[in-house]
Amino acid sequence: MGTHNHPWQPGSAYFFSAHLRDRYSHLLVEHAQVLRLAFRVAQQARPFRVNAIVILPDHLHGVWTLPAGDEEGHRRWLQIQAVFDRQLPGHPPRAMVRRDRCVRPLWHTDFREHRLVDADDVQRHIAYVHDNPVKHGLVREACEWPYSSIHRQCAKGESPC
């Protein structure tokens, strides 16, 4: 499922999941602003559309679309990790950072992703992303979770919040 097993398709939408190594960590929600910054930096360097995202305490799920002619999805994720790691106060301890800059001690070495086949598949995965905090018992209603793009849909009147 890792991105180096098969190429990314330019212009395609992808579902992805990324997990911290520490399953008991709350680092992602405690530093959600840092993660948002990392996404903005990556989007400025290599534009892409975030269709949906949810940040949970120890992992995140998202749906994003690459521009036509661009298959650099994996590089985007590596950049997001690198910016997050560098901006995080006191994490990771510099002694833990390996010479291989692609290996990030906070994160599992690979993230899961797969290409979405059509508009219905995109909508199903967006719903999965937004419902994930409910699935994990963090809230009763998806709209209650503050670290979710569902609030963009609510503002547009596209989701019942």
Rank of each mutant, 00 (worst) to 15 (best):
M1C: 06
H4S: 02
H6R: 06
P7S: 12
P7R: 07
Q9D: 15
P10M: 13
G11P: 07
G11F: 12
G11S: 08
G11C: 10
G11T: 01
S12P: 08
A13H: 06
A13S: 03
Y14V: 04
Y14W: 08
F15H: 13
F15R: 06
S17H: 00
A18R: 02
R21I: 11
R21T: 11
R21Q: 09
R23W: 09
Y24E: 15
Y24R: 05
S25N: 02
S25D: 03
S25L: 00
S25Q: 06
H26Y: 10
L27N: 05
L27S: 04
V29H: 02
V29S: 08
V29M: 02
H31V: 01
Q33C: 08
L35K: 03
R36Y: 15
F39Q: 15
R40K: 15
R40E: 13
A42N: 10
A42K: 11
Q44L: 07
R46S: 04
V50F: 09
V50R: 05
N51T: 13
A52M: 10
A52W: 07
V54C: 07
L56D: 04
P57T: 12
P57E: 00
D58H: 07
H59G: 00
G62I: 01
G62P: 11
V63I: 04
L66R: 13
L66W: 11
R75V: 12
R75G: 12
W77F: 08
L78C: 10
L78W: 05
Q79L: 01
Q81E: 10
D85H: 11
D85N: 10
R86P: 00
R86V: 04
Q87P: 04
H91I: 07
P93I: 00
R94I: 14
R94Y: 08
A95Q: 11
M96R: 07
M96S: 11
V97P: 05
R98W: 04
R99Q: 15
R99V: 07
R99M: 04
R99Y: 05
D100P: 03
D100R: 02
C102T: 13
C102W: 15
V103N: 09
V103E: 03
R104G: 09
P105M: 03
L106W: 00
W107T: 02
H108S: 14
H108V: 09
T109Q: 09
T109F: 14
F111S: 07
R112G: 09
R112V: 12
R112N: 14
H114R: 12
L116H: 00
D118S: 14
A119N: 08
D121R: 07
V122E: 06
Q123E: 08
Q123L: 01
H125Y: 10
I126D: 02
Y128I: 05
V129F: 01
D131W: 09
D131S: 01
N132E: 11
N132M: 14
V134E: 04
V134R: 02
G137F: 03
G137E: 03
L138V: 10
L138D: 02
V139C: 10
R140L: 15
C143T: 12
C143M: 09
E144N: 06
E144Q: 09
P146A: 15
Y147L: 11
Y147I: 06
S149T: 06
H151L: 13
H151S: 07
R152L: 10
Q153R: 15
Q153G: 15
C154L: 13
C154D: 03
K156L: 15
G157H: 13
G157K: 04
E158A: 13
S159D: 08
S159V: 11
C161T: 00
C161G: 12
C161R: 02
